[in-house]
Simulated scan of single mutants.
Amino acid sequence: MAVDFKWLGLQMFATPVQPTTENTIYYTDADVVNETNFGKLLEPGLRKIFFETYDELPEQFPRIYNVMDSDKAQEKDWGMGAFGDWTERTSQFDTVAYKTLSPGLERTYTHSAFTQGFIITREMFDDEQYRQIEKMPRAMARSGRAKVEKDAMIPLVNGFTTVLYDGKALFANDHPLLDSTGTGDNLQTGALTDVNLKTALQLMRQTVDEAGNLAQFKATKLIIPPALEDTARRLLHSAQVPGSANNDTNEYLQSAGLEIVIMDYLSAAAGGSDTMWILQDGARHELNFFWRVRPEFKWEEDFDSFVSKYRGYMRYSMGVSDWRGMIGSTGL
């Protein structure tokens, strides 16, 4: 009984027959690549279009995130207490007062996976070539990029409502401290104005550690939606205090050295807010983003139907491990 190996165009019998050009439907290795396997022909070009489109504008979220790679299903972070004041020696025979730091609370980053794809028939490839097909990886790349940027804004957009590891929202005026009866404050109120921005800068300098001691944070970035760009530039770059008729110098805000960081996906149009503004210590904040799998583009062809499937895949997580280094206001 014959078994038909269609993928080679051969027939195998109980008594093996040597294949020849007379009894075999065959093609060369070059034919396999250049004629039949059209999906492989398309793949390099579509892959190039995908990544060129994804990278056509610089990603915004890395300007405010610590971006890291992960090789695990989850990343965990632990907070720790802090040492209080040193103990004065009142006698030459005093012994050292040893202290154990209070254990902190666990912060867990669980990576989520995201996919998108499209299918191309052989007829579409034959008839349309790249006129329509090239639009598909472009659209997929842009939607993937938008997904990452939108997700990266979630900790900020929800920063006044979503409860975190310490039982408080990211921006709150009563963060509990592990080694102190006091509380921490990183919540500013009011619109982005001269007075409110100066108050927020001072609030950043008053950030305390888990023992209630000043941690000496300093704001270096002003994170805003596009709607506040004009206001921010007037506040930071005007020679005089904006809106004042007293000709007061604006040296304080000019010398603050704040970098204006405009986040498009922080806007109301993207599900955020047009009034929210945030100060960040760019060197010491704990706003973290983990890439488990960076965006990839792959393909597969079905032999019988001539259909080629192209898909994108990425996996990541983001969040905050410490409220310190961030001051936020809803702008209301």
Rank of each mutant, 00 (worst) to 15 (best):
E75F: 00
R145H: 08
T161P: 09
T95E: 14
P103L: 08
Y54T: 09
E88C: 07
Y109A: 00
T110W: 08
P137E: 04
G104P: 02
E56Y: 04
Q74D: 15
T108A: 10
T121L: 03
F118G: 01
D55V: 05
K150Q: 12
E123F: 03
T90L: 10
F114R: 08
N66Q: 15
G117C: 01
E123Q: 13
L101H: 05
I120L: 03
E52D: 15
E75Y: 01
P137F: 00
F83A: 10
P58V: 02
A113M: 09
T87C: 00
N66G: 15
Y65Q: 02
K135G: 09
I120A: 00
A97E: 15
A139M: 09
E134C: 01
K72F: 13
F160A: 04
Y130P: 14
V96L: 03
K150P: 00
E106I: 14
R145M: 06
M124G: 10
M124P: 06
T95Q: 07
D85F: 03
V67A: 04
A152D: 01
Y65L: 00
L156Q: 07
K147M: 09
Y65G: 01
G117I: 00
R122C: 10
S143R: 14
E149S: 03
F93Q: 11
F93A: 11
F51D: 05
E123P: 07
E149K: 03
Y98V: 08
A139Q: 12
V157Y: 08
Q129S: 15
A152C: 05
R145W: 04
G117T: 02
T90N: 14
D151C: 07
I49H: 00
T87M: 01
V148F: 02
F51L: 07
T87P: 00
Q129V: 08
V67F: 02
K147G: 04
I133H: 07
K135I: 04
Y65I: 02
D85E: 10
M68S: 14
A82D: 11
E106D: 06
K147S: 07
V157M: 06
Y98F: 11
E52R: 14
F61I: 01
G81E: 01
I64V: 15
R142K: 10
P155D: 08
K99H: 11
R107G: 08
L101Y: 05
T110M: 10
S102D: 12
R145D: 05
A141R: 00
V67I: 05
T110P: 06
S112H: 07
K72H: 14
E75T: 04
